[in-house]
Design a protein around this nucleic acid. Sequence first.
DNA 1: CGTAAATACGAGTGATCGCTCGCATCATTG
DNA 2: CAATGATGCGAGCGATCACTCGTATTTACG
Lengths: 217, 217
Amino acid sequence: MPGNSRPEPISPARPSLRKQPRQARSRALVDVILDATARVLVRDGYAALTTNAVAAVAGVSIGSLYQYFPNKDALVLALRDRHSRRMHVLIMAEVAHWEAAGHDTTLADLMARTLHAAIEAHRLEPALHKVLALEAAHLETHHEGDETDGFLRALLERHAQGPDPEVTVPDLGIATFIVGRMAHALIHAVVLDPPPGADAHALEREAVRAVMAYLTA
Amino acid sequence: MPGNSRPEPISPARPSLRKQPRQARSRALVDVILDATARVLVRDGYAALTTNAVAAVAGVSIGSLYQYFPNKDALVLALRDRHSRRMHVLIMAEVAHWEAAGHDTTLADLMARTLHAAIEAHRLEPALHKVLALEAAHLETHHEGDETDGFLRALLERHAQGPDPEVTVPDLGIATFIVGRMAHALIHAVVLDPPPGADAHALEREAVRAVMAYLTA
DNA sequence: CGTAAATACGAGTGATCGCTCGCATCATTG
DNA sequence: CAATGATGCGAGCGATCACTCGTATTTACG
């Protein structure tokens, strides 16, 4: 497959890695390349992301890059995966820490805590996250916090059962869907695109209030 | 400025039209070109959108295309504007029709009606709307229903005043922001990306319920 | 050490594509 | 029916860029 092929007829780069880096040297190389990808992406945007630029910024040969990534999309995909994984770890750590401390277990508290954790996670690399969400949305079906979504679903189900359910919605499946989309949109709005001059705490409070209002209306 | 220049150093295509089409013939041409742009965009996605392809699909010379559009981005921008305008007209027509008929003026009803109108408008060209939202998000700051947002803002302000306000939120500015993002996300979710097998009416009902629950919690 | 595998290198290839420019055709005006 | 401008045409220029491949260097290991 020589030469250029940007429009990419029908091969969305299934495996993100071409060859597994075995030695520590090459594992570090992969990380450096992903770092450089993030840098270029944030600095110049997806349209200006070229494999040559990434290699140059990484201080690495273009040949080395293609040793581990089969094509440009795989590069971005791998970066997105790494970023998502890091965020997910952050969120789960915060939630686990809270639960381990034996704190409240009301839905309102857990939800507030989870949303807070998600918001904090989004502050990890907000610029990168914004670019990925905005300009790499077309690369394969998202899974942006798909795992976190599973956690949310379980949370809702747990609190929609029992004799005195805190959640009062007609259809739990639809409610999960609605809440997922709401939460996602509000988190992005609050962290990545807040109205100028607004108080971050107030924004977060309102986001939580919105979700809870829907669940307990 | 000959040759290629895709990464576009620093000129984001200010004017969407290079020359105003004066005769009916050329006005029709511009429309045909925009139609073709939409077709290609929906069929092949933004990455595969080339000006040559658009011209070919439109049955028009590439030279004619550049007679009216200074560059590729201007093409997509113009299409997005046309699409937004059409949707906005649809929404406002529906709302005006409802108000002219002297129907309810409770916030709940007006909001439900407005959201319904917006949802219907999104059903105009859902595939195109999805591609534009997903793959053309980076082209200039959005204004996707910015005008409709203004309408929403006015609606909220009207119902947050008076002796017995229907809207009970701590900060109207923040509330408008939250509601705007919520509405936008939920409308897209319901129309462009509903969960498989879900009832469209139920989804819409829940979306409205979510917005109202927040406003009157 | 010696050798084989893994890793790193980067100039070059070939294809794509945005866009121009000189010329042909059509509409309008007096 | 000129004459003038508006419109339409499309071959091809020039630049970019994803990706390869033959070679050089480093590591692992007996």
